[in-house]
Design a protein around this nucleic acid. Structure first.
Length: 574
DNA sequence: GCCGTTTTCGGCCCGACTGTTTTCAGTCG
């Protein structure tokens, strides 16, 4: 069985959970959690690194011990240390840790005193009223546990970023009109533009006497108030989205924004930096002794730590602090840097608007070119084009371009990459297009080597310009197909073609770590809407968010180029 | 378990809220 990074990360996470219940050294536990995160976010396959005999211990946060465990897992699929831990503890007990309100101490007590080892046993013990008698527990805790378990069994999932944005924007509008609110922002993973969001962290700067907390409680989408203090409150919305609200004074707003934006790993690294400088960093500011030396703005906080401001999308402790420290923080691409969009559909296939409607919508967004890329004939369900219909559309585009001003339509196609790596339309049909976007829409189940070679072969076609949604993932619903992305990226480099970052909120594909890989390998990425309607161009902002998470600068993005340069970049390989 | 121009040992981030307590432990972010 080939071992993927996610498998290794899962093993380390489980070890951390079990060690936590065993009340092991907390820093040892953190080392495992840290390692799980590092491996999970690593752009490269650990398996390949092992095969190439690279030194895993060179990864920050990975030492000799964890490197050896990773090699063991790659070689055998197992980790003896985990097997040993599992033999010392009930098999399913780590599930209990994931119940809100239960940490290692309580799980341990439940296990030792009541022999509770599974979620079902936990629910039964709560219903029987046996939990309230335990030391440190009470009637209320018991009721909370029961409710949490039942909610947990019905599983609240993470929301896609675009979905969370809808809930966030209406709640923010409601809160912003409260008395005495000076500033308000959604922090957390939402601000970092993660592709999914577990909860909303809303930060507010307000005068004393503001009624914002009361207004929050009165919000009509609040289903349940989970906790409420003078400065902090949590609620579950009817949409099953949890919202954490925090109110601070303006002088602390920057420090609090920094704190609640995270990530946790980034915050820990910042605090460590503060400590090195003899300072203390918390959500109220940067302190030297008892005096606050920074905190009203994020810039002031970073400055006090000797750093330039770091964009939220970078704050994952993936080297951004070192880069900032060295005076080389990446200049990140912005929505306004985009000059065009290289992937869109019209009524001709499965889109909803006409060529002209799409062109005018793109122009209204400030774009100066738009590639029309319908599906090809193989995708019959989307009314994919055959050579004849494609030729007709090309003529229509030529005619339309004569009347349009301020926007140029490019002739393209989203051609299916067939199972053998050939393209779904003959070369003669592709040759007259401005660009060819290739995409995998079938046989997601091919083994890694075959899937990789399929796409490599497609890139070998001299008309191939751009690989659409390169991993094929659908967020929260379909995993990526198994493919060697590094080989794809390097092949794209040698063949002079490019990768897409599909901005559709269900895709956000390339994922951030592969954006970084493309950047490092010198392959340009096109941030495309894959619009099927006029409204879909708005999704470009989510693509930009993912690109920024992947450290992409304007120069790393294909469609920041003016049209003439874009044509030159596309033509180079032909 | 990791890490290191102060260190190969001894550190490792910090505060709010809840529920259970009579001053604080546990959990969470």
């Amino acid at each position: 069985m080939p071992i993927h990074n996610a498998d290794i990360a899962a093993i380390f996470t489980e070890m951390a959970d079990l060690l936590e219940i065993q009340q092991a050294n907390p820093f040892r536990i953190r080392a495992y959690r840290n390692a799980a995160r590092i491996v999970g976010e690593l752009g490269r396959e650990v398996r390949a690194m092992v095969e190439r005999r690279e030194d895993l211990a060179e990864l920050p946060g990975i030492g000799d011990d964890l490197a050896a465990k990773m090699r063991e897992i790659v070689a055998s699929g197992k980790c003896r240390a985990l097997e040993r831990l599992k033999s010392e503890l009930p098999p399913a007990i780590s599930e209990l840790l994931h119940v809100p309100g239960l940490g290692p101490k309580r799980v341990r007590t439940l296990w030792h005193e009541l022999e509770v080892q599974t979620l079902e046993q936990l629910a039964r013990a709560a219903r029987d009223g046996r939990i309230r008698a335990l030391p440190g527990f009470g009637v209320k805790t018991e009721a909370n546990i029961l409710q949490s378990v039942e909610a947990h069994l019905s599983k609240a999932r993470r929301l896609k970023l675009a979905t969370a944005a809808q809930y966030a924007e209406s709640l923010v509008a409601w809160l912003a009109s409260a008395r005495g609110v000076a500033r308000i922002e959604v922090a957390g993973s939402f601000r970092r533009a993660r592709d999914t969001v577990g909860d909303l962290d809303i930060l507010i700067a307000a005068e004393t006497g503001s009624d914002v907390m009361a207004r929050f409680v009165a919000y009509d989408e609040v289903a349940q108030l989970l906790s409420q203090g003078p400065t902090r409150a949590s609620a579950m919305l009817r949409s099953c989205l949890q919202v954490d609200l925090r109110v601070v004074e303006e002088a602390a707003y920057g420090a609090a924004l920094c704190y609640f934006t995270g990530s946790k790993a980034h915050n820990i690294a910042l605090r460590r930096l503060a400590q090195e400088r003899g300072l203390k960093l918390n959500e109220y500011g940067v302190f030297r002794g008892r005096s606050r030396i920074a905190g009203d703005s994020e810039e002031s906080v970073y400055r006090a730590l000797g750093l330039p401001w770091i964009a939220p999308e970078l704050r994952e402790d993936r080297g951004e602090i070192a880069a900032a420290r060295a005076g080389r923080p990446p200049q990140l691409v912005q929505l306004t840097d985009l000059r065009g969009d290289l992937h869109a559909h019209t009524k001709a296939s499965d889109g909803h608007h006409t060529l002209e409607e799409m062109a005018l919508a793109a122009k209204a967004l400030g774009l100066s070119y738009l590639a029309i890329t319908e599906h090809s004939r193989r995708l019959a369900i989307a009314r994919g084009l055959d050579p004849r219909r494609l030729a007709e559309q090309c003529e229509e585009i030529d005619r339309l371009n004569e009347t349009l001003s301020g926007i140029v339509l490019l002739k393209g196609i989203e051609v299916d990459i067939l199972e053998d790596g050939s393209l779904d339309l003959p070369d003669a049909a592709l040759a007259r297009l401005d660009l060819v976007v290739g995409a995998v829409h079938s046989r997601f189940d091919l083994p890694r080597r075959k899937q990789t070679e399929r796409i490599l072969r497609a890139m070998d076609n001299r008309h191939f310009t751009l690989l659409a949604h390169p991993t094929g993932r659908l967020i929260e619903s379909r995993p990526p197909y198994d493919v060697d992305m590094l080989r794809l990226v390097r092949h794209a480099k040698t063949r002079g073609c490019y990768l897409e970052l599909n901005a559709h909120p269900d895709r956000l594909d390339l994922p951030d770590s592969y954006c970084l890989m493309a950047k490092e390998e010198g392959v340009l990425v096109a941030i495309n809407s894959d619009a099927h309607s006029r409204e879909d161009f708005a999704n470009l902002r989510f693509g930009i968010g993912q690109a920024r998470r992947g450290w992409l600068a304007p120069a790393d993005v294909l469609n920041t180029r003016p049209l003439a340069e874009l044509r030159r970049l596309i033509a180079m390989r032909r």
